[in-house]
Simulated assay, not measured.
Amino acid sequence: MAEVKGSKQHRMVVVPYRPVRRVLVALVLLVLTAAAIGASYYWGYHQGASEQSGAVAERNRLRQEVAALTEESEQLRQQVANLRLGAEVDQQASQEMRNQVIELKEEIAALEEDITFYRGLMSPGDNNTGLTIGSLNVLATGIPRQFEYKLVVQQLATDHQVLNGNLTFKIVGRRNQQTETLSLHQISEQEDSENIRLRFRYFQNIEGRLTLPENFEPERIEIVARSSGRDSQTVEKKFGWLVQEL
């Protein structure tokens, strides 16, 4: 055969023509491919089923744990609520008990004060007889510059006779940098005279409501009581301005 100049020449090989063999090879390859696909599917299915079974078991276990924890949490919450309620009840009971103790102490103190007061009236000391200025209380009313007052004047004696006399009640303070004295009748509607009349056998309460003028700053209260008659007495007592809040 003539060669063509300038082109690369390939060697030619003669191969027998066998169509049946080609078909067999193709069938074998097809069977192997199908077997591989089937094996892969079976393995994947088995593996998936196994994993799914494990996942279901794990899910069921977690559900049981969640239910148990939920129940435990509810029990703990109930215990906390019970403890809190018990603490509140105990605190309330303790506060009520404390209040009762305070009230009883105040009641006992008041009773002891009354006993001392009446005992002094009926059995005074040798050096403490006759007209006496007792306690003075000034209470806030909640209204600016308005106060309630209660003064006790008493007679200490073993043989009580009716005591007559009079009393002056003055408040000393400062207004506009100047010392000023106010008589009770000037600032209280309960009194109409500077000299308050005294007439009692055991004791007499002098009480009412007073109103301080603007810019007046009280400093003290001065009380002077005088009895009349054969054994007349004059007693004086000063109290600092002390207001008891309501």
Rank of each mutant, 00 (worst) to 15 (best):
G120A: 09
D159C: 07
Q178S: 13
K150H: 02
L151H: 03
E189R: 14
P144K: 08
Q154K: 08
F200W: 03
I187V: 14
E189W: 11
R197A: 10
E189T: 15
P144F: 01
G130H: 02
L184E: 10
N137Q: 05
F147C: 01
L184T: 14
R199W: 03
E189F: 13
Q178K: 12
G130C: 00
K150D: 07
H185Y: 07
Q161D: 11
L151V: 05
I133S: 04
F147R: 02
V162E: 15
L182T: 10
K170P: 02
T141A: 00
F169T: 05
S193P: 04
Q146T: 15
G130Q: 01
L139M: 04
T132W: 05
T168Q: 12
G165S: 15
F117W: 05
L167Y: 13
T116I: 05
L136N: 02
N137Y: 06
D114K: 13
L182G: 13
D159A: 09
H160K: 08
G125P: 02
V138A: 00
Q186F: 04
T116G: 08
Q178D: 12
M122F: 11
T181L: 03
I115P: 05
F200Y: 08
I115Y: 08
Q178A: 14
N166C: 09
N195H: 13
S193Y: 13
N166Q: 09
Y202G: 00
L163F: 08
Y118L: 09
T158R: 15
T179A: 12
V138S: 01
N127K: 10
H160F: 06
Q146W: 02
L121H: 03
N164T: 12
E191W: 12
F169D: 08
K150V: 01
H185Q: 06
P144T: 12
F117Y: 11
G125E: 06
L136K: 00
E194T: 15
R199D: 04
E191S: 10
D126C: 00
Y202W: 03
K170V: 12
N166L: 10
D126I: 03
E189D: 11
K170C: 13
N195C: 03
